[in-house]
Structure formats: structure tokens, C-alpha cells
Design a binder for these strands. Structure first.
Lengths: 190, 190
DNA sequence: AGCATTCAGGAACGGACGTTCTTGACTGAC
DNA sequence: GTCAGTCAAGAACGTCCGTTCCTGAATGCT
């Protein structure tokens, strides 16, 4: 019953994620969304309820379709240097997570929950990479210090992307990530 | 000539910095500023020209009076572990820098210039700390790898504060920073 | 004392915001 | 073929935004 919708909801959510990754939540107006998404105001509110509803949908789509695959490949990286290179190659693929963490998570509990969950996933992948050198399995228990190290590694990779956004392309976040990863490599240090 | 102003400009700028550190640029309205700063609309525009003018003044005041002292103490920290502890103790003292970097620098060239300058200052302080163990001076030339490492260390400390803002106070950014700093300490690794 | 200047207070501006409403065209089920 | 239901299109809503203007009162200088 009724006329079928003339837009692809998944495509709309994907395009919304692209917009929200590039500008602040307040910096993206509903007019912007209507214009760039090809969906009409009415349908937007019918489908997502509000601007925030669309934002949450876009965030979840992004985490599932962009961050999750990256986390999976990080877990398969084998060593920290390769993991850092993967994160560096992701480039703007982390911008939405960065923006959501710094500007929305502090004022939106649902965003905070999604974001912390995603960050913990990254922690897990990087922790596995930090533990396992190519020669052995898990190291002796260190009282959680290595998971703390994974937290710091995640923070560093996000922070490097942050710096890449602020400074021009001249800053060398790639080399910085590589230098850090080399230091963290369990097969070299200790 | 004329009636003297009834507010302390430095105090106004300081209070503005506190507001901008807690919310997005768009999230702080001129009404908020007028209400919390005790200065009237007219005086605000007479003194700072615009909301952006006040924002820039607040950012510069903050960088000079909060970040710069922190950078100086970081440079005097002696070793990375103590530097990480100092950054951790700074707590919300880095939030304005974080917010400015991620949300304003990409769309405001003057903000970007201030921010990158401040970040480079942090790099310098951390680089000095990474180079110099308690036993020796500068290490042999490594082709700039250690300055890249300093960049990554800065990114990590900022990223940890980012995580502290998003997740509750339960996340342990302090331990993560300590774990990272210990790994980076030139007197222990290598 | 008189005047020029700057202040505080607050109303008012045009525009943009997120959201809702009205209208008419289209489609699927009966 | 009819009708209920959903769609697209866009006007319109009230609110808040950053900014400007108007009105007196207060001050320093001559």
C-alpha cells in the first residue's frame, strides 16, 4: 500500500555519514542534508524522526561499514608497524569517529556509548597485535599493562589523524605513526 | 575621555576560554557569553569585533596562560613517565586545544596556525624529554625518527584526553599514558 | 560647567535553524 | 475503479542565531 519510496535508505545514511564526517554536527544543517542526500525533508523526518536520529543512523552505519572492517584488518596486521600503516592509510576514514568522540559524545549519551564501544574494539585489535610477535603467542601476564598500552596506541593513532586534519598535509603523521609502532614492537624492544 | 569600562577584559577572555573549552564553537551562543561573562553585548562587539574575534582572543589567552606553562613543565619533566603524568594531571586543561584542533582548525586558518604552533611546541618539549635520559645528552642522529616519535607522543597524550572526555571517568587514561611513556623511555628500551 | 566620548541596558534586525503542515501526485490492495 | 496510504514538493511555523541600533547615564578633558 502506498507509493514506494524514491530513495535508497542505505545510500542516504551513507551520504549523511560522509557529510557528518566533514563538518560539525551543528555545521551540517537539515537543508544541507536535504540538498546533498536527494531525499526530501518530509521523508527524512518520516524515516529518521529528527536530525539527531539521522546522525545516529549515520554513525552506526559508519562504525559498522568502515570502522569495523578497519578493526578487523588491524587485528590481522601481525605487528604494530603494519597496524600503524593501515591506520595511516585509512586517512579520513577515522574523521567521523574523531568528530563524534570530541564533540558529540560529551553531550549525547548514545553517541558516547557507540564511540566507546568502537574505541574498545580498536583497543582489542591493537592489543592482540602488541602481544603477539611473529615468534610467540601471548606474553606473560603483566597486570594489564599491555592493554593499557593498547589504549595508548589507539589514542596515538587517533591523535595523529587529528593532527593531520589541523596541520596541512606537510605534517608527517605517517612517519610518526611508524616511529611509534616500531618502538612498541614487542620483537624489538625489551 | 569617556566612561571607563566596567569589566576586566582579561577576566572576560579567561571566562570565554572556559566556555569554549566545554562546548563547541556553535554550541556557545553570544547570549551564553553575555550571560556568563558579565559583559554586555555592546561592549563585547566593541572590544572583540565579533564572536569569532572573542574566540580567537580566548584561544590565544588560553594557549599563552595554560598550554605554554604546561609545555614548559613538560620540558622540565626529565623523563617520559613524568611528562605523561604531568599531561594526565592537566586533565581538562587540554580540552580547549583538543576542541579547537578538531572542529575549528579545519575551517579557520588563524585557528589552525595557532593550534599547529602550540602542537609543535609540545612536540619540542616531549622530544627533549625523549632524547635525554638521566645519564646522557642527545643521542646519535637518527634521521629525525625521534622527532617523529615526539609527534606521536604528543598525539597520544592528546588522544588519551580525548578518550577521557568521551568515556566516563572509569577509563584509565592515566595508566595508559604511563604504560606508553615507560615503553618510550630511552633508558629502558633499546 | 560644558562637551565629547564611552559606557550599560535592552530592543530590534534579518536570516538560518530544526521541525511541522498543506497540497497534490502516485501506487498497491480490494 | 475506488480508496486508503505513502510519497514528493515546498510553504510556513516558532525559535534562536549573530549583529546592529537606539537611549540615557556616567566619566575625563578643556
Amino acid at each position: 500500500m502506498g507509493r514506494p519510496r524514491g530513495f535508497d535508505e542505505a545510500e542516504v545514511v551513507r551520504a549523511a555519514a560522509a557529510l557528518f564526517a566533514g563538518r560539525t554536527y551543528d555545521g551540517v544543517s537539515v537543508d544541507d542534508l536535504v540538498t546533498h542526500l536527494g531525499v526530501h525533508r518530509n521523508s527524512l523526518y518520516k524515516t529518521f524522526g529528527s536530525k539527531r536520529g539521522l546522525y545516529l543512523a549515520a554513525l552506526r552505519w559508519y562504525l559498522e561499514h568502515e570502522v569495523h572492517p578497519l578493526v578487523a584488518s588491524l587485528g590481522r596486521a601481525g605487528d604494530p608497524v603494519r597496524a600503524a600503516r593501515l591506520a595511516s592509510e585509512a586517512g579520513a576514514g577515522l574523521d567521523f569517529l574523531l568528530l563524534a568522540t570530541v564533540e558529540r559524545a560529551p553531550v549525547d549519551a548514545e553517541v558516547a556509548a557507540e564511540v566507546t564501544s568502537a574505541l574498545h574494539a580498536v583497543d582489542g585489535a591493537l592489543g592482540a597485535v602488541l602481544h603477539a610477535g611473529p615468534d610467540n603467542g601471548r606474553r606473560a601476564d603483566d597486570g594489564g599493562a599491555s592493554s593499557a598500552l593498547a589504549t595508548a596506541f589507539t589514542a596515538a593513532l587517533l591523535g595523529l589523524r587529528l593532527r593531520a586534519k589541523a596541520g596541512g598535509p606537510d605534517t608527517g603523521p605517517d612517519r610518526a605513526g611508524a616511529a611509534l609502532a616500531q618502538r612498541l614492537d614487542s620483537t624489538l624492544s625489551r
